[in-house]
Amino acid sequence: MTMRKLGLSIYPDHSDFEKNKAYLELGHKYGFSRIFMSMLEVQGSVEETKAKYQKIVDVGNKLGYQTIIDVSPRIFDQLHISYDDLEFFHDLHVAGIRLDQGFDGATEAMLSYNKYGLIIELNMSNNVDYLNNIISYQANTSHIYGCHNFYPQVGTALPYDFFMKCSERFRKFNIHTAAFVASQVGNMGPWNVNDGLPTLEMDRRLPIEVQTKHLFASNMIDDVIIGNAYASEEELKAMSSLNRYQVEFHINFVPDVNEIEKTVALTPQHFRRGDMNNLVIRSTMPRVTYKEVPNKPHDNEQEFQRGDVLVGNDGFGIYKNELQIVLQPHSEARKNKIGSISPDELILLDFIKPWSKFKFSE
């Protein structure tokens, strides 16, 4: 598993240099370190194109970004670039190129040995034997990355199950992976339709940090990139402050939550018991750690709903101060409702398997 990174997208053909520079500086402030750069449409001569892209890539390089540029066979033709010589991209100072369309396997394998050491990034959003084929040609896998597509048109992004199947093909070979989330304010992409630019359709309208948590929780994605530009500073900040390595639920506490319950929720490293059940996710260590601390009943008469967070009260004997997250509605007077998970984050409950680690933030 590599370190997980956050990324931004830049569209030099639809934007001005100063705005892009300011965006990269803002991203750098919040720890973003990858750039997806679109080169699916080119205006002007080879030299003009080179100068324009190089200028913004150099800004990113100075700030410590890794830039991968998205290209199609049409661009190779338009700019008279040969697959045997990637000097044009080396001159742009990018770290790699993303092949928006695939070739025959042998070509990609050969490209992975290019003399400039450029990363060759493959399109992950197809559930076909593409990667196996490339690897069977003895590709240089350390220089091969995978990156999903994004989908500007509402309703056309990937369903979750299909996304998982496509991603598993890359995970199997330990290939570095990336996917996209959508800013809710950015309105720039590669085309003139822009309903957000996510990889997953179910993520399209969610807050950006929830989309990011979702992709990381799948355990299939190393780098999460914002597909559309420009995301707001609030969005960059929200993404930068989330936990990239375990699910951290945002909890909304009830008014009567007490000190011990807040401590039980916010202090320990929670993990789900290995012997799981379908009713609740149980984090049982707090009942040991805080077994001496009293906890009076409150908010214990209603029917608890999926995503409610409960703590055992004084009436619950050995289970006092055990923390639980509700999966199926039920009633139990020996448990206090201390809060609930944000509705947008209920999709993350499915990722809490036996022994999964998780946390809460207020």
Score class of each variant (00 low, 15 high):
Glu233Leu: 11
Met188Glu: 08
Glu121Gln: 15
Phe103Arg: 01
Ile260Tyr: 02
Arg169Phe: 01
His148Ser: 10
Val57Ala: 07
Phe32Leu: 10
Ala238Phe: 07
Phe173Lys: 11
Trp355Val: 14
Asp129Val: 11
Ala106Asn: 12
Met276Leu: 11
Val311Ile: 00
Asn313Tyr: 02
Thr2Cys: 11
Ser232Gly: 12
Asp308Ala: 03
Tyr137Val: 04
Lys237Asp: 06
Ser342Tyr: 14
Asp104Asn: 06
Phe351Met: 00
Asn114Leu: 00
Glu41Lys: 08
Thr199Tyr: 10
Phe162His: 13
Pro73Ser: 01
Pro343Trp: 11
Glu303Gln: 15
Lys357Asn: 02
Asp350Ser: 03
Tyr83Ser: 13
Val280Thr: 05
Thr284Leu: 10
Gln184Asn: 14
Asp256Arg: 05
Val46Arg: 13
Met188Ala: 08
Gly315Lys: 05
Tyr137Ile: 05
Arg34Cys: 12
Ile144Thr: 04
Leu79Gln: 07
Leu206Cys: 02
Glu47Cys: 07
Phe271Asn: 12
Val309Tyr: 02
Glu259Ala: 09
Pro12Lys: 06
His93Val: 04
Thr199Met: 10
Pro343Thr: 13
Asp58Val: 08
Pro207Glu: 14
Ile97Pro: 06
Tyr245Cys: 11
Glu209Thr: 09
Glu209Asp: 15
Gly27Phe: 10
Ile119Leu: 04
Pro152His: 01
Ala229Arg: 15
Ser9Gln: 09
Asn132Glu: 02
Asp58Asn: 13
Leu158Glu: 06
Gln54Met: 05
Asn300Gly: 10
Thr263Leu: 13
Asn61Cys: 07
Gly189Lys: 06
Glu121Ser: 15
Phe304His: 12
Ser283Gln: 01
Asn114Gln: 01
Met110Cys: 12
Met124Thr: 02
Ser331Leu: 11
His214Ala: 11
Phe170Ala: 07
Lys320Asp: 08
Arg98Pro: 00
Glu209Tyr: 15
Thr156Asp: 05
Gly7Arg: 00
Lys320Arg: 14
Val257Asn: 01
Leu99Ser: 05
Lys21Asp: 15
His28Phe: 09
Arg204Asn: 09
Pro354Leu: 05
Gly146Tyr: 00
Tyr83Pro: 10
Glu121Val: 12
Ser283Val: 01
Arg4Pro: 05
Phe360Met: 00
Lys213Arg: 14
Gln66Lys: 13
Phe173Cys: 10
Met3Tyr: 06
Arg4Leu: 04
Ile318Gln: 12
Ser142Phe: 05
Pro12Gln: 11
Gly64Arg: 03
Val257Trp: 00
Gln66Arg: 12
Val185Ile: 09
Asp223Cys: 03
Val224Arg: 01
His93Ser: 04
Glu332Thr: 10
Leu266Pro: 07
Leu99Asp: 08
Leu348Met: 02
Asn61Met: 08
Tyr130Trp: 11
Glu209Val: 11
Ser33Trp: 06
Val42Gly: 03
Asp314Tyr: 03
Ile175Trp: 00
Arg282Asp: 07
Asn258Ala: 08
His176Gln: 13
Lys213Met: 04
Met285Lys: 12
